[in-house]
């Protein structure tokens, strides 16, 4: 079954993902020329990236999904995953996998820091990156029924060193739970294995991070093994992604505020579930490279 899926996945990735109708059309002329949507995502750019990234996805990382059918084919969903590797491979892999299989866009929420970087910030935005603001996520999920991918560990995930691998960091202040509650969308937890070994962080240089204004400056094994190429090139670790049972919160959507204790409790629960699943997958993993 996994085999047949991979075939039509490759076919799909060449076709354009149809963009969903966002607002009711009142027949106003809209003489647009480009295809950049209101989030800055361009389907043409995404489609090009999917074509280029496909060998990376299927040959280099040989990505395998478990319970892919738990990802909704339509309607909003907040994908929550663990985050790892100095330049994390988990985000592009998850976005590529879902977009090519389901033919629907995935918006990757990340630090607003990207918006300040010329060229990279624009590319990031065109390829589906959105600044992680609760207002943005709620509009995407609630009003537009899209898929949004968040990493609640934030930059604390990818910046942790190799000795702490697969130990999930604190899930922020549980903002993602509040977003899901307010927009009335399910949380879909994803456990990712392999991303830690793709780009292990040996040590960090805080002074350089400060100088460059980046959230962190890691020295990776890739950097030592491959030189400058190691900045972008991950090791070919086998990446496995397990989709956990979607979680819907039993609260009224659209409220201004939710009880802090409930939010933190639920955030912790999601974190525990992902952590447990990651350990489970590591227990059955025989080889870093072959899975």
């Amino acid at each position: 079954m996994e085999e047949s899926r991979q075939v039509d996945e490759r076919q799909l990735s060449r076709n354009l993902v149809p963009l969903p109708m966002v607002v009711e059309d009142e027949g106003l002329p809209d003489p647009r020329q480009g295809d950049v949507d209101e989030w800055g995502r361009s389907e043409r750019v995404r489609s090009f990236i999917r074509t280029v990234y496909e060998p990376m996805y299927s040959k280099w990382f040989r990505v395998e999904w478990e319970h892919f059918d738990r990802i909704p084919a339509e309607g909003g969903g907040l994908l929550v995953a663990n985050h790892a590797g100095a330049v994390p491979s988990d985000a592009p892999v998850i976005m590529h996998g879902i977009e090519s299989r389901l033919g629907r866009p995935v918006y990757g929420m990340a630090d607003y820091f990207f918006r300040t970087v010329p060229f990279i910030g624009t590319m990031w935005s065109r390829s589906g990156g959105v600044a992680a603001r609760p207002e943005n996520a709620e509009r995407l999920l609630g009003e537009q029924g899209q898929l949004a991918l968040v990493f609640p560990e934030g930059s604390k995930g990818p910046s942790k060193s190799f000795s702490e691998r697969y130990h999930l960091r604190r899930f922020g202040r549980g903002g993602f739970v509040e977003i899901a509650m307010r927009s009335g969308t399910p949380v879909i937890p994803l456990a990712v294995v392999g991303s830690e070994e793709a780009m292990p962080v040996l040590f960090k240089v805080p002074a350089l991070a400060k100088l460059l204004g980046t959230p962190y400056f890691p020295v990776t094994a890739n950097l030592l093994a491959m030189g400058p190429l190691g900045i972008v090139m991950p090791f070919p670790a086998k990446i496995k992604i397990s989709v956990l049972e979607p979680i819907t919160f039993d609260v009224e959507p659209g409220l201004e505020r939710y009880p802090r204790s409930l939010v933190l409790e639920q955030a912790d629960r999601v974190r525990e579930l992902i952590q447990e699943q990651v350990f489970e997958m590591l227990r059955s993993r025989r080889s870093i490279w072959w899975g």
Binding site: E38, W39, Y112, V130, R133, R139
Partner: peptide, 12 residues
């Protein structure tokens, strides 16, 4: 600003 939401509501 880079920290802005993409769509300001009147209350923001």
């Amino acid at each position: 600003n880079e920290r802005d939401p993409y769509f300001f509501t009147e209350e923001n």
